[in-house]
Amino acid sequence: MLVPSAFAQTAAAPAASGGFLGTLIGIAPLLLIFVAFYFLLIRPQSKRMKTLQNAIAAVKRGDQVVTAGGVIGKVTKVEDAFVEVEIAANTRVRVVKATIAEVTPPAGAKPAND
Score class of each variant (00 low, 15 high):
A109V: 15
V65E: 03
G22F: 04
V93W: 01
M1Y: 07
L41C: 00
K47Q: 10
L31D: 00
G62N: 01
A13Q: 15
N90M: 06
I25A: 13
S17V: 13
K97W: 07
F34Q: 06
I25W: 12
A15K: 04
A11S: 14
S17Q: 15
A13L: 15
M49S: 13
T67R: 05
K50I: 10
E86T: 07
F82C: 13
K50Y: 04
G69A: 08
I56K: 10
I100G: 00
G19R: 13
K50D: 08
A81N: 07
P29K: 07
V95G: 01
V83G: 11
V83H: 01
V75H: 10
G62D: 11
V71Q: 05
G69W: 01
M1N: 10
I25S: 12
A57I: 02
E102S: 12
A107G: 07
A58I: 02
K47T: 11
G22H: 06
F39E: 06
A88W: 05
A28P: 04
R43D: 02
K77C: 06
M49L: 14
F7M: 13
T99L: 08
A109I: 15
A81H: 11
R94K: 03
S5F: 13
A12T: 05
I56C: 04
P14W: 00
A55D: 04
V93Q: 10
V78F: 07
K110F: 00
A55R: 05
L32Q: 03
V96K: 13
L52C: 03
Q9L: 15
D80C: 02
T10F: 15
A98G: 03
V85R: 07
A11I: 14
G62L: 06
L24K: 05
V85C: 02
Q64C: 05
M1T: 10
S46K: 14
S46D: 07
T23Q: 14
D80F: 02
T23N: 12
I72L: 11
A98V: 04
A11G: 02
S17T: 14
S46P: 07
A36N: 08
I100H: 03
A13R: 15
L24Y: 12
F82I: 14
A58V: 07
V85A: 07
M49F: 03
A8W: 08
P29E: 04
Q9V: 15
S17E: 15
V96I: 13
A98S: 06
G73Y: 00
D63S: 04
L52Y: 08
